[in-house]
Design a protein around this nucleic acid. Structure first.
Length: 452
RNA sequence: GUGGUUAUAGCUCAGUUGGUUAGAGCGUCGGAUUGUGGUUCCGAAGGUCGCGGGUUCGAGCCCCGUUUUCCACCCCA
């Protein structure tokens, strides 16, 4: 016949069944966001490249999907530019838009651009797809949804608390066992300061972030390969090997960081947050993890990451405090804190554990089936009456064979079928059949409405 | 971007050292059953073996390229 159609690498279609499951996730998350007074915004799928470029590091720039300029983009190019084969320069000349890479940077742009319409602190949530041109693998897609919640315009640690409470509530509702890992960028800065490698902070954090995966020795190797002195690495060891309860860890950190003002501030912040969580009886386990660094270098305070305990997959939620995100867009001094739920990974987790409530599949409550065109017409007003009562109702649109119509109901998991033939029409009733039990009885409109 | 892996019917997969006309289950459609689905029985349709090139008398099978799948690294939700 024809060649098979396909979709781009790392993207997916979602069937009605899958969408029912996904909406269960989105709705759960949304409900909790609203419960805390967050308001929804949306931003365009595409942003100007000038907004996106340079915000995610060199790696991020490579992973941006760029959109070719419309029209004859080649007309203005000089032969030199073409023959130079410089991908970066050429890109700048033929592309000025890109698909968003996350929701945080577009949000920062949004805040700066709409500051006249916003009152601070601004609590927003945003649930939209983002795109990354990296290679797909387990739990990693090129198009995926993020569910962001952020508070900007306040540096109160109560915001951190709220976000933790939201995480706690969302995963309780979804019935996923998780652990919240928490750290503080100020502590990491303090550490770099103490060991005398303040400017290598990024390299150090990227390396110790891998502690879980590659172990202490390899982390040390990687740090050494970045040109950090053996002496500094030696000083780092007690920190990497830190153990005990959260409180014990913090006590130890106080002595280690005694000479670092920033470091101590980070410790104090975490103490406050732990105290608040305890007072508010947050049930989810919260674990201080000094190896938690996270790649994004715009975090300045608390850093969060949530991992599922029963499924091996990357983090399913992450975020942190950023003091000056809007600064790059010319609006200084706005502090924000936010987290992002990775809907697609949550979806994978729920699929693996099969944790969907049964009702999420069922959509249509009753299907009208009929034997002829006269019966079909007769159904129309019945269906209307049911719909007015809020009952999801369908009419099989043609008088096909009974078997065909009944199978349709069966396949769609429709619990009730209203059968209409001549005899039913004569007495102004329908034969209502319960598809689970097989029972059926002659009923009129009022009766159906009551039964359903 | 690096390394490995995968691709056969709508879906899940068989297919012998390279040998005639590529199979099964599920699904779809039709029938057994002209007013009754989910069970059962019978039958049918459905394939450029991802795509392009090469080796060979002969390729689903071997070789090269390319795309795709999945996995690891980098990075990340």
């Amino acid at each position: 016949m024809s060649q098979k159609p396909s979709i781009p690498k790392g993207t997916r279609d979602f069937t009605p069944q899958e969408m029912a499951n996904r909406n269960y996730i989105f709705n759960t998350i949304k409900d909790v966001f609203r419960l805390y007074g967050f308001q929804q915004i949306e931003t365009p799928a595409m942003e100007n490249l000038s907004t996106l470029m340079g915000k995610y590091g060199e790696e991020g720039d490579k992973l941006l999907f760029k959109i070719l300029n419309s029209g004859d983009f080649a007309a203005q190019l000089t032969d030199n530019e073409l023959l130079g084969r410089n991908a970066v320069k050429l890109t700048n000349r033929i592309s000025e838009k890109g698909l968003r890479y996350d929701l945080t940077v577009p949000f920062a742009r949004f805040v700066v651009q709409n500051r006249d319409k916003i009152s601070f602190p601004f609590k927003r949530y945003q649930i939209q797809p983002v795109w990354r041109a990296d290679r797909p693998q387990k739990g990693r897609y090129r198009e995926f949804y993020q569910c962001d919640v952020d508070v900007v315009g306040s540096d109160s640690l109560l915001s951190e608390l709220e976000l933790i409470q939201i995480v706690d509530e969302v995963y309780r509702r979804l019935k996923i066992n998780v652990v919240i890992k928490i750290n503080n960028r100020k502590i990491l800065s303090g550490i770099a300061e103490i060991i005398g490698e303040a400017e290598k902070i990024t390299d150090i954090t990227v390396a110790i972030d891998k502690m879980d995966k590659i172990g202490l020795e390899k982390v040390n190797e990687e740090i050494a390969s970045k040109g950090i002195s053996a002496e500094a690495i030696e000083k780092l060891q007690p920190i990497l090997k830190l153990s005990g309860s959260n409180a014990e860890k913090l006590e130890q950190m106080k002595t280690v960081l005694a000479a670092s003002e920033v470091g101590l501030k980070g410790v104090a912040e975490l103490e406050t947050i732990f105290g608040l969580c305890e007072a508010m009886k947050v049930e989810t386990k919260i674990e201080l993890d000094l190896t938690l660094a996270r790649g994004l270098n715009y975090y300045t305070g608390a850093i969060f990451e949530v991992k599922a305990l029963d499924v091996q997959i990357g983090s399913i939620t992450g975020g942190g405090r950023y003091d000056n995100l809007t600064g790059v867009f010319g609006m200084e001094g706005v502090s924000g804190v936010g987290i992002s739920f990775g809907a697609d990974r949550i979806y994978d987790v729920l699929n693996q554990l099969n944790l969907y409530p049964e009702t999420s599949q069922e959509q249509t409550r009753v299907l009208f089936v009929s034997f002829g065109n006269a019966e079909l017409n007769y159904c129309l007003s019945w269906a209307n009456a049911l719909r007015q009562q809020g009952i999801n109702t369908e009419i099989y649109p043609e008088p096909a064979k009974m078997k065909k119509q009944m199978s349709y109901a069966d396949n769609k998991n429709i619990p009730f079928v209203a059968i209409v033939g001549e005899t039913e029409m004569q007495v102004n009733k329908v034969m209502l059949k319960n598809m689970k039990t097989g029972e059926q009885k002659l009923t009129d409109v009022e009766e159906i409405i009551q039964m359903l």
